[in-house]
Design a protein around this nucleic acid. Structure first.
Length: 285
DNA sequence: CTAGGATCCTGTCAGC
DNA sequence: TGCTGACAGGATCCTA
C-alpha cells in the first residue's frame, strides 16, 4: 500500500547504508528476489534513487536493485546490537516496523558488517529485481512510467485526460503510465482537494479542474513526504501507543461515516473500478 | 487502441 | 468457537 511518499521516505532513510558492503544475502522466498545473489554479494551501495513507487539501489559492480513494495512491502534497516534503537523502517505500516527481525514476513535479507536491511512483504506481490544499471530505463515498469505530478504542466495533464477521456478520473490517475506515484490514498485525497467526483469521465474535466487536480496530487504527496509518509517515525507515538498516520493526514481516506472537514457533509465509501473509494458527495462534483 | 475484471498472496475482520 | 466471504495504500494480464 506504499505510495510515492512512503518510497521517498525509505529512499531518504537508506542514506545510512550508502557505501556499506553487502557481505551476505539470504533469500527466504524465491519469488521475491529476481536475479542472482552473486550480482549483489560483496558489492557496495553507491546510490539510492526513486522513480515513481520504485526504489533503485545502485551497486558498485554495474548492477541496480529495483525494489517495488506493491501492497505490503516494507524496508527495514537494523543496526546490529542496537535492535529497534538506531533503526529505520518504511512501507506498509505494521507491527513488523518495531518487532524482531527477521519476522515471518521477511523475504530477503541483506547483511552488512554492522547491520542488515530486511525486505518484508506479507502478500508477496512486491519484489527485488536485479537490472544492469545502464538498462534501468528500459525496464518495463520504469519505461512506461509517466511524470510525477510536480514535473508536469497543467496542459500536459489536460491532454492526457482528453486522450483517455472514456475512463473515470480516479483510474486514470492511478495508472502509473499517466502520472507516477499516485496510489489509492493520494488519489482519493487529491480528488477531495480538487472537489472532483472520482467517477467523473476524464474527458469531462475542464482545464481549470485538471489544473486543480494536478496541484492536489502534488500537494498531498508533498505534505505526506514532509510528515515522513507512513514510516516507523510516526508509527510509534511518544506514549508508546501505535498511531495511525492516516488519522492525522487523511481528509477522506478511511473516514467514511465521518463529517467532511470542508462542508460538513458525510464522507462516503464506494467502489470505483474495483478499488475502495472515499469521497464527499456534497462537495465533490 | 481502450476499459473493466480477474489474478497473484496472506491476513484480518465482520457476520453467522 | 469456527467458518465464510469481503476486503486490503498495486500492477499486470486477459477479455471484450
Amino acid at each position: 500500500m506504499p505510495e510515492l511518499p512512503e518510497v521517498e521516505t525509505i529512499k531518504r532513510g537508506l542514506d545510512v547504508v550508502l557505501s556499506k558492503k553487502i557481505i551476505q544475502v539470504k533469500v527466504l522466498e524465491k519469488k521475491s528476489f529476481i536475479g542472482e545473489i552473486e550480482q549483489v554479494l560483496n558489492t557496495k551501495i553507491t546510490q539510492v534513487r526513486r522513480r515513481g513507487k520504485a526504489l533503485l539501489i545502485d551497486l558498485d559492480n554495474g548492477w541496480t536493485m529495483m525494489i517495488h513494495l506493491r501492497m505490503t512491502g516494507q524496508v527495514i534497516f537494523r543496526l546490529k546490537e542496537r535492535g529497534v534503537e538506531g533503526s529505520f523502517a518504511g512501507g506498509h505500516p505494521t507491527e513488523d516496523f518495531v518487532s524482531k527481525m527477521p519476522s515471518r514476513h521477511t523475504r530477503v535479507i541483506f547483511e552488512f558488517s554492522d547491520g542488515a536491511v530486511y525486505f518484508n512483504d506479507q502478500r508477496k506481490f512486491g519484489f527485488v529485481k536485479l537490472i544492469p544499471t545502464e538498462k534501468v530505463e528500459e525496464e518495463s515498469f520504469i519505461k512506461r512510467l509517466g511524470r510525477e505530478p510536480w514535473e508536469m504542466r497543467g496542459e500536459e495533464f489536460y491532454e492526457i485526460l482528453q486522450r483517455k477521456k472514456g475512463s473515470n478520473v480516479k483510474s486514470l490517475i492511478l495508472d502509473q503510465g499517466n502520472v507516477a506515484g499516485v496510489g489509492n490514498i493520494y488519489a482519493d485525497e487529491a480528488l477531495f482537494f480538487a472537489e472532483i467526483d472520482p467517477r467523473r469521465r476524464a474527458g469531462s474535466l475542464s482545464k481549470k479542474e485538471a489544473e486543480r487536480l494536478l496541484e492536489g496530487m502534488g500537494k498531498v504527496m508533498q505534505v505526506s513526504i514532509e510528515l515522513g509518509g507512513s514510516s516507523m517515525a510516526n508509527y510509534v507515538k511518544a506514549d508508546g501507543s501505535r498511531g495511525d498516520y492516516l488519522e492525522a493526514f487523511a481528509k477522506v481516506f478511511n473516514r467514511q461515516g465521518r463529517r467532511c472537514e470542508r462542508c460538513g457533509g458525510e464522507v462516503k465509501k464506494i467502489k470505483v473500478s474495483g478499488r475502495g473509494t472515499h469521497y464527499c458527495p456534497r462537495c465533490q462534483k
